[in-house]
Amino acid sequence: MWSSDLEERIREVLAQEAEAAREGLEGLEERVMRAIAQRAAQPSLWQRLKGRWGLTFSPRWALAGAASLALILGFALGRMFAPSPLPLSAQAGTLFAVVNPQAHSVAVMGDFSAWEPIPLTDPDGDGIWTAVLELPPGRYAYAFLVDGRWVGQDPQADEYVRSFGEYASVRYVGTGGGA
């Protein structure tokens, strides 16, 4: 179901997230220790609570807590500002996808639609146009229309056929081992 383009995109997003988390951890220990030293001069809320309730406080726990906080924050920021990753499990249905950031309109048409174009959408503008169609099991020929231009060879197809001088892709949908 996944094209190498989509997989590459997922890998890029994961790499960006890992990078964002790593940046948050750089010099963390130093910063935390400096902050602890500065705050030691005046009793903090934590120290006042500790004194009042007799709680024990370990620098190791503080470091672990701060590291966890930085990780969570880095992950959240990465998620917020990086492009949304694609889901790793497709929902029920057959996914049709075209990766084309320059396209203004993309549609798929085939045996499942009496060759009437069905629009693909790219709501987040990342150039990945998709549609999921609920198709009964069968063998389906189809092609994409990208800005009105016929694109008959889908990398995700199980095979290709050629008629009227143009290729069409074919998917075996259902239990035949196809998409």
């Binding site: 917020m80 492009p83 949304s84 694609l86 889901p87 929902q91 549609a131 999921v132």
Partner: peptide
């Protein structure tokens, strides 16, 4: 906002046939 964006990114466009 981040949560909404994340949820939006996770959803495929389900297109009903005619």
């Amino acid at each position: 906002v981040g949560l909404v964006l994340l949820m939006g990114g996770l959803g495929w466009a389900q297109v009903p046939l005619a």
